[in-house]
């Protein structure tokens, strides 16, 4: 049956006159539907779209990245250098690979970027994502990286949020919940 159907179609292509006209009004109907759906659904009704990607240029963004740093004894001291924001040098970016640890970068960025209250559960949630730990004498710093454009100049800074060491996980003293901060 399937072969017969395909044969009939092939015969139709071979023998049909060239005036087998398509019903173009259907394209215009779908075009109107497209306008209606996109207009009433914030520009997105797959596959219809106004394709707004990259339409808002110069917007600040936030991501997450994990970098390895030498461990200092005073990592829990808020004044220690470890917790100071880092200027990111884009020309030689080195990081701890999330792919190698089967961690989804979008999920991880959302977790770090959107968390407002860093409870012990949230901090241990980060630790659970990583199946391994750094070697002794090294810490993995979880950075919330923010990019922005000010008066035509681009700046990218990483704010340390959490440090993972060989045997513990520490929240930046700058992020302790308000009521815990004296």
């Amino acid at each position: 049956m399937m072969a017969d159907n395909l044969k009939d179609t092939q015969d139709g292509i071979d023998s049909k006159p060239q005036d087998s006209r398509p019903r173009t009004k259907w394209m215009w109907r779908i075009f109107l539907l497209n306008l209606l759906l996109v207009g009433s659904h914030l520009g997105e009704f797959w596959p219809f779209s106004i394709f707004p990607m990259f339409s808002k240029a110069g917007q600040p963004w936030s991501r997450a990245m994990v970098v390895a740093v030498p461990l200092v004894d005073s990592y829990s001291d808020p004044s220690a250098m470890l917790w100071e924001p880092l200027d990111i040098n884009i020309h030689e970016l080195q990081a701890i690979s999330l792919d190698e640890r089967s961690i989804d970068k979008i999920d991880f960025s959302n977790y770090v970027g959107k968390t407002e209250r860093w409870t012990p559960e949230v901090v241990s949630g980060i630790a659970k994502m990583f199946p391994d730990r750094p070697e002794q004498g090294t810490a993995w710093l979880v950075l919330k990286v923010r990019g922005r454009m000010d008066e035509g100049t681009v700046s990218v800074q990483g704010e340390p949020m959490v440090a993972l060491t060989a045997d513990t996980v520490v929240l930046s003293p700058n992020l302790y919940p308000l009521e815990d901060n004296p």
Binding site: R63, I88, A95, S97, L98, G147, V156
Partner: peptide, 15 residues
């Protein structure tokens, strides 16, 4: 600015 954003994504993914 976009190149920086994508660079962070890429480094975060691959190292």
């Amino acid at each position: 600015l976009w190149i920086h954003e994508k660079a962070i994504d890429y480094a975060s993914m691959t190292g």
